[in-house]
Each structure stands twice: as structure tokens, then as C-alpha cells.
Amino acid sequence: MKIKLFKQEIEGSSIRQIERSSGEVLKNCYQCGNCSGGCPVSYEMDLPPSQAIRFLQLGKVEEVKKANSMWLCVGCQQCFSRCPKSVSAANLFEALRQMSLRQGKDHREIRDLPVSFLEKAPQQAIVCGFRKLVS
């Protein structure tokens, strides 16, 4: 992979929006990798948390948006809990999800959910899932 860097992207409006929406400061991350090491779903992510943050630091929002990472993050805050710089990858993923959801781009169609799930799963799973994955 080769990427070209642009100042306009690094300081771009998308980056500012992500920082505002997540309350995180991307520059604070020094890429130690603790989040990726501890994240329970890191193994399944196209971009583990620290790498996703790295792309955001470089201004490459699209790279992160097209990865599955933000839809896999469950918000368990293990990343934040052990981050030496107190950065929450979970908050950043939530901001990215919100960006998508606020544009009406859902990750999950409700009609596709199996009936058995809707019947048996605890309500909180459904409410929470809708909040995170559906606009």
C-alpha cells in the first residue's frame, strides 16, 4: 500500500469532526499498540484500533471508514482503560459510526434480524444494537 499525504486531509474537516464528536485528540496517541493488544475484537478487525488511529492521524478517514473495525467495536473501553495516553479508540469508533449513521447509512437492516433473536434476546441487546448500528 502506498498513500499520499496532504495537509488538507491531515487537518481536514472530517478529522476535526471526528475529534469533536469523539472528544479525543488524535495527536495524543503515540502508537504504542496497547489498545490493539487488549481489544477483544482486534483479531477480527481489518484495522486494529491503533492502526485505525494511525490512519486518522494521517488524515485518511476513508481508509478507516471502509474497514469493518468501527462496526466490531463493542465499546468495552478496555483500550481506554489501559491507554497510557488516555485515548479511547472506542470513542473514536463511535464518532465514525455516528458520521455514517447520521448520514442515514445503516450497518444492519432490521428486517434481516432473525425472529428467534428478537424473541429471545434480552431487550438491552436489541436497544443497544440499534443504537450502535442503525440510524
Partner: peptide, 18 residues
């Protein structure tokens, strides 16, 4: 990379990191 946690399992010390 950094290590997220260390725990014991079956007489071994398991290190989980990145």
C-alpha cells in the same frame, strides 16, 4: 508494541499484546 495484560494459565504466564 505494548502489552495489554498478563495472566496465568496452566502454569504459564500468558502475555497478550500487540
Amino acid at each position: 508494541g505494548r502489552v495489554s495484560r498478563v495472566y496465568e494459565r496452566g502454569g504459564k504466564v500468558v502475555v497478550q499484546g500487540a
